[in-house]
Design a protein around this nucleic acid. Structure first.
Length: 290
DNA sequence: GTGTTTGTTATCAA
DNA sequence: CTTGATAACAAACA
């Protein structure tokens, strides 16, 4: 799933690829993907507009535009942003959906929108499950969208003191649910919440009020370390996520808990357990995590 | 046909 | 206000 490291990887790649380019046309193949306008109006509003900068808050990308508006993008669970510069041919990647093929002009099965830029460069928005969205917003809308989010784990504001305050704000919550609460800490999803718990040696069901100062400190370090490494590896391609050139992120082989139920713990060889927490899978080692 | 996968929001319940 | 559960969105896969 695209979480902080995946979305930040795309932000960096698209910053290089798109900033300074002008949108020449937008084609939309699934109308509910674009908001809040009809596809026709949406496309019209973006025609001949330049991308001036790209930002990220939590799991949302913001493409700031020369008309004063911003294109906000959320990939939700299966969204992809694939960039094709003029004349480039995309490789044959295992992760579907693919843009490559003999007819790059034609949208693939899961392509919901295509942006064409000057120089014939193209940005494909693919989304198997249609949860993702492209939202054209004003500066004010953008502010309203971003202000509800909590601490950015890779920012200077992510101090131990601030983290402790956010983490313990709802003392009776289970640890993993707190880590997933975007209004407290922004950008963690199921993969990195599980990995953070593993690295800190903490069970996902622990109530936050039972955590010692020492454990909170370890968790704080764990979150920073894991997100930093995952970002350096270009994110985790466990299902649909791909980088902007269509290639997979390399963090998958570093996972120690997520998706490893039944497999031996990399630290103590105890089979990784899987439980249901708030309707999602939670993976952990009964021996290494307390 | 059933259960599982998950980001986010809405809604209901205690 | 806190917390927890469930459904909704949607489609693939085992």
């Amino acid at each position: 799933m695209p979480e902080l490291p995946e979305v930040e990887t795309l932000r960096r790649e698209l910053e290089r690829a798109l900033v300074g380019r002008v949108i020449k046309s937008v084609k939309i193949f699934w109308s509910k993907t674009v908001q809040p306008f009809t596809p026709t109006i949406f496309a019209k509003q973006l025609k001949n507009v330049r991308v001036t900068s790209i930002e990220r808050t939590a799991k949302i990308l913001f493409l700031n535009l020369s008309n004063g508006k911003t294109l906000a993008i959320h990939l939700k669970m299966t969204g992809q942003l694939v960039f094709q510069s003029q004349g480039s041919t995309l490789g044959d990647f295992k992760v579907e959906p693919l843009i490559a093929g003999g007819h790059p002009e034609d949208p693939k099965k899961y392509t919901r929108a295509v942006f064409e830029f000057n120089g014939r460069a193209k940005l494909y928005f693919n989304d198997l499950r249609k949860f993702g969205w492209l939202r054209l917003v004003s500066a004010k809308d953008k502010q309203i969208m971003t202000e509800k989010y909590g601490l950015e784990p890779l920012s200077p504001e992510f101090t131990l003191a601030n983290f402790t305050r956010a983490l313990t704000r709802y003392p009776n919550r289970k640890l993993k649910l707190t880590l997933l609460d975007q209004t407290l800490i922004a950008g963690l999803g199921n993969i990195y919440a599980d990995e953070s718990c593993f690295a800190a040696g903490l069970r996902p069901r622990r109530r936050v009020k039972t955590l010692t100062d020492k454990e909170i400190k370890k968790l704080h370090r764990a979150i920073k370390q894991i997100l930093k490494l995952a970002l350096a590896k270009g994110g985790t391609s466990s299902r649909n996520y791909v980088r902007s050139d269509g290639s997979p992120g390399d963090f998958f082989s570093y996972l120690k808990a997520y998706g490893r139920s039944g497999q031996p713990c990399r630290r103590c060889l105890t089979p990784i357990a899987k439980i249901k927490l708030a309707g999602r899978g939670a993976h952990f080692c009964k021996n290494c995590q307390r």
